[in-house]
């Protein structure tokens, strides 16, 4: 199952857990399953069906786009949610 690194600023929602393993074939499914286990996570990460502006999703160390919810995951994928680093335009 994919491993999710919980950002330090969201660990108040996961009882302090830094890493969580949840089922899911896509980032969307992983977030839905995270939400089921830790209510409030989804609202912090998503709005209007997309990853929130200002948040970046890394899968196995590789940055995805704001459309990253559709990204398919390997069984042992590692997912990080990080503050977005803009390409220079602003956040």
């Amino acid at each position: 199952m994919p491993h999710v690194a919980i950002p330090s600023l969201m660990r108040n929602l996961t009882a302090g857990r830094e890493h969580v393993t949840v089922p899911g074939n896509t980032v969307r499914e992983v977030i839905d399953n995270l939400e089921h286990r830790y209510p409030g996570v989804k609202a912090r990460l998503c709005e209007e069906g997309r990853i929130k502006p200002g948040i970046a999703v890394y899968i196995d160390g590789i940055l995805t786009t704001r459309e990253g919810l559709r990204e398919r995951l390997d069984a042992d994928a590692e997912i990080h949610f990080l503050p977005a680093i803009s390409g220079g335009i602003g956040e």
């Binding site: 502006p53 200002g54 704001r66 803009s86 390409g87 335009i89 602003g90 956040e91």
Partner: peptide, 10 residues
């Protein structure tokens, strides 16, 4: 509105 500039939103 949020402007989506490809490399980031603002």
């Amino acid at each position: 509105k949020v402007a989506d500039l490809g490399e980031g939103a603002v």
